[in-house]
């Protein structure tokens, strides 16, 4: 059996709903790492959905929307990746009336439903990938921090050195995307911990863009430009692949 046939058969079992829970979860993990498989699933699911469209619409019970609205009125939306099953929306919804097995089943099905989209790219955005990575060097040429910069200019900072930050000082993060604009502040941090700074309305980070951290007086540079010593700096690189 060629790998092509294997992929088509596996996608078929998935889309036809023939996999048990474990195999379905495995297929969804496969979609995350195998874009070709994910695309095969998405295409087949789209084609098969013509069969769904042949169902004659059923009557909708009068109170149903009211019940949904009652649940979502207090239900926050999930803005960060897949939620753990025990916190899933419908789980909360049915917490008062559903028997325990049903709650478990529901959690599983939500995981599965979102697994498909999330992993398969059929319906969901995947976890955001950084558009560039930055390895930042200290003045004595050791690696001091790694940044992951995302399309919205949010920035994950992973310090690798233990910076000495006096009480009255703060670390300020800068990027230079355009020399005529000069360095722009991306935010501050008071200690060397993994931190994510919020996105800003700046151009999408590009390769070779300069990033640096300077030591500034609290609560941040008084001039809006770097004034203190550079702790680390580095240039952005695109992740391979």
């Amino acid at each position: 059996m060629s790998s092509d046939s294997e992929r088509l058969a596996h996608a078929g079992d998935y889309v036809l709903g023939l996999l048990d829970d474990d195999a379905r979860a495995e297929a969804e993990r496969k979609m995350e790492r195998d874009p070709e498989f994910a695309e095969t699933v998405r295409r087949l699911a789209e084609r098969m959905s013509s069969l769904d469209d042949t169902a004659k619409p059923a009557d909708v019970p009068a109170g149903m929307w009211g019940e949904i609205l009652g649940t979502i009125a207090t239900l926050p939306q999930d803005h960060n990746g897949a939620s753990p099953p025990e916190q899933s929306a419908a789980n909360q919804n049915s917490a008062t009336q559903a028997p325990p097995w049903r709650k478990l089943a529901l959690a599983a099905s939500l995981a599965a439903a979102f697994g498909l989209g999330y992993a398969g790219g059929f319906v969901m955005k995947t976890t955001p990938e950084p558009v560039v990575l930055v390895v930042l060097q200290t003045p004595d040429n050791t690696t001091g921090a790694v940044f992951e910069a995302f399309a919205d200019n949010s920035l994950k900072i992973i310090p690798l050195a233990d910076f000495d930050v006096p009480q009255d000082k703060i670390m300020q993060v800068w990027t230079l995307y355009d020399a005529s604009v000069g360095p722009v502040s991306l935010g501050t941090l008071s200690s060397a911990e993994v931190t994510t700074l919020k996105g800003q309305a700046l151009p999408v980070p590009a390769a070779d863009q300069l990033y640096e951290i300077t030591l500034e007086p609290r609560p941040g540079s008084p001039t809006g430009k770097p004034t203190g010593p550079i702790l680390v700096k580095g240039f952005a690189k695109r992740p391979a692949g």
Binding site: R42, I68, D78, S83, G117, M124
Partner: peptide, 29 residues
């Protein structure tokens, strides 16, 4: 629909239609 509300921020029309998304959720459920 409750799940769709909760997870809507991750919906991406470039990767499949909203109707297909809802259908997938309901079929799996």
């Amino acid at each position: 629909f409750i799940a769709a509300w909760k997870h809507a921020p991750r919906f991406d029309p470039a990767r499949g239609s909203a109707r297909a998304w809802l259908t997938t959720i309901v079929r799996n459920r």
